[in-house]
């Protein structure tokens, strides 16, 4: 029970959604601290530190920009390099965050078995720690957009695009982190799914190059995120709006599932660790 006085009252294994949301909101200091710790740990030992977070999507985009045009010519709104870069930046954020966050409750069991805080804090802080390394990447993306002459007021859309990416990724991560406590193969299911997922996401090809299965690609929530980054940088595909609605719908649905799972299992995840 969340009252003004600290403390709690537990009447069973399941709590109320309201308490869960209030407790999570109260844990925002903890979320920030855990995210910073995670961020420091990840880059402290690497010689280039946080630069790696920049270099990896840039390298990936560069390689794709060299190879793909030799295989197929896509009609993209702006330069293909910028097109593929905006896609990989968004995709890399999604992929690395989901990989890390979906196992976060189990990975932190030394602490979760001893101290209570809403378990959703862990996947959320994983999203935040990835956001820290995402910010410089986005600055580079903005700089390249300007340098290649695609810059406009639309660059400001990078902010809502980032928020949307965090919301979708966070919602999915909270659901997966809960499932992973019960089903330890979720880790591998996620890895396998991500391998396939990039091909049904318009990262290296534009949506308008696809015939037939295109509506299915629009349903893919990550399409919405990628398209939003495209709108902000290289320019919109003509069908970006439906994918945006799908993404929002997915985010809301996943949050509802997350709320349901954590309301029921938040206080008993530990029993399975």
């Amino acid at each position: 029970m969340s009252t003004a006085e600290a403390g709690f009252e537990l009447l069973g294994e399941a709590g109320t959604l309201r308490d869960l949301i209030v407790d999570t909101w109260r844990s925002r200091d903890l979320i920030a601290t855990l995210a910073r710790k995670e961020f420091l740990v990840r880059y402290r030992r690497a010689f280039f530190g946080v630069l790696w977070a920049l270099v990896i999507p840039l390298m990936q985009a560069a390689v794709l920009a060299l190879v793909i045009p030799k295989l197929a010519r896509f009609h993209t709104p702006g330069s293909y390099l910028l097109f593929v870069l905006s896609g990989t930046v968004a995709w890399t954020f999604f992929m690395s965050t989901i990989t890390q966050a979906s196992t976060s409750i189990v990975d932190n069991q030394a602490v979760t078995t001893r101290v209570y805080f809403p378990r959703s804090v862990l996947p959320i802080s994983a999203v935040l720690s990835n956001l820290y390394s995402f910010v410089p990447t986005m600055l580079i993306l903005g700089a390249i957009t300007l340098a290649t002459g695609h810059g406009s007021w639309r660059l400001l859309l990078l902010a809502p695009a980032t928020i949307a990416a965090c919301a979708l990724t966070g919602a999915l991560a909270i659901v997966l982190a809960a499932l992973h406590v019960y089903f330890r193969d979720v880790r591998y299911v996620v890895q396998a799914a991500l391998l396939a997922w990039i091909y049904v996401t318009p990262v290296i090809y534009p949506l308008n190059a696809v015939r037939g299965i295109r509506p299915w690609l629009e349903i893919n929530p990550v399409t919405g995120v990628v398209e939003l980054f495209r709108v902000a940088t290289v320019g919109a595909d003509n069908a970006w709006l439906p994918s945006l609605w799908w993404m929002l719908a997915w985010t809301v649905a996943l949050l509802l599932v997350a709320g349901f799972l954590h309301r029921r299992f938040d206080r008993v995840f530990v029993d399975l660790l």
Partner: peptide
């Protein structure tokens, strides 16, 4: 664990 609130009764 129950007293710490990490698990519910």
């Amino acid at each position: 664990r129950l007293l710490a609130g990490v698990t519910g009764p």
